[in-house]
């Protein structure tokens, strides 16, 4: 029998935990209890970068980790977070589950990870307390909280906003108008009650926030073929289950946010947004030839 330690940073019920719990359920059933999974949640083992380091060290076998923290291990993952890349869910699935997504997962092997599948937080959208946003011009001067990431900072700078890095949580800062807005996947707006303090939401879908369901390469290579097939199958089904689940819930979330009085812009001028950030593909972050080549292929494929 085998015990898999799987780590996530989020609390039970969050997107990552749904993948983890489903995977645990599937693999334990399919292996008739031969393989058991212990899920470490709520960052009890460390933050996402630290979990990845622990997977490299072999103290943890698997993790469901958002794409962002991977980029210090392998810059190719930045491609997934490129702004306004995917048009919608179907396109994201098509690309990430297809050969281009495989290229990213394969590349992770050079830094000691076995990339197994993509699951998701979903598209990030913009909310603010100042004004309705439909075009890039509406964003000018808005103070938007961003994660401490060079890419996210650059995106919002290019769009003309005043990006403000700030540690989570940010409810008070939004309420006191220390910042005007924030950008996150839909579930965050619901769970953190941002509808109480943010009047406007724009379905910018500016960045597709995905997780990579990942294992340690050394551990993976030592597994039997049967176990590898079993794990790969279970994580794939868990990931697809979670993506479907998340999208089904998004419809309810939209309805709730509207009912709570948020004014939602469903169809912003995405073409104009795309045009504004078009030059980002030449920025330093994407200058590595390998990364740039894949980015160009991605942009072609999503056009």
């Amino acid at each position: 029998s085998m015990k898999i330690k799987l780590a996530v940073v989020t609390k039970p019920g969050s997107a990552q935990n749904i993948v983890a719990d489903k995977f645990k359920e599937l693999i334990e059933a399919r292996s008739q209890g031969e393989i058991t999974v212990k899920v470490f949640h709520s960052a009890s083992l460390g933050n996402e970068t630290e979990i990845l380091q622990q997977i490299q060290m072999g103290t943890v076998e698997m993790g469901i980790i958002t794409a962002g923290p991977f980029d210090t291990f392998d810059p190719i993952v930045r491609v997934v977070n490129y702004p306004f890349l995917f048009k919608d869910n179907d396109q994201a699935d098509l690309i990430l589950d297809g050969p281009l997504g495989q290229e990213i997962l394969k590349s992770l092997e050079t830094s000691g990870f076995k990339g197994l599948h993509f699951s998701e937080n979903g598209f990030r959208n913009l909310t603010n307390s100042k004004k309705a946003v439909k075009t890039p011009d509406d964003i000018k001067g808005l103070k938007i909280r961003v994660m401490a990431s060079a890419l996210h900072k650059t995106i919002w700078q290019t769009l003309g906003a005043n990006p403000t890095p700030m540690p989570w949580p940010i409810y008070t800062e939004l309420e006191q108008s220390v910042i005007d807005g924030q950008e996150n996947p839909l579930w965050v707006m619901e769970v953190y009650k941002f509808y109480e303090i943010q009047k406007y939401m724009t379905m910018t879908r500016h960045v597709y926030s995905s997780h990579i369901d990942v294992a340690g390469l050394k551990w993976w290579n030592a597994l039997s073929d049967d176990n590898r097939a079993l794990i790969a199958g279970a994580i794939k089904d868990a990931a697809i289950f979670q993506r479907t689940d998340n999208r089904a819930k998004n419809a309810g979330r939209m309805a709730l946010l509207g009912k709570k009085g948020m004014i939602i812009e469903q169809h912003p001028d995405v073409t104009a947004f795309r045009a504004r950030v078009a030059d980002l593909k030449n920025m330093d972050l994407y200058s590595d030839p390998r990364v740039n080549a894949l980015l160009i292929k991605m942009i072609e494929a999503t056009r």
Binding site: A148, S149, P165
Partner: peptide, 15 residues
């Protein structure tokens, strides 16, 4: 040495 290639997210300083 293990993390020699990793950089910090905001400042891009070597970790």
């Amino acid at each position: 040495w293990f993390i020699r290639l990793q950089i910090s997210p905001a400042l891009s300083l070597p970790k």
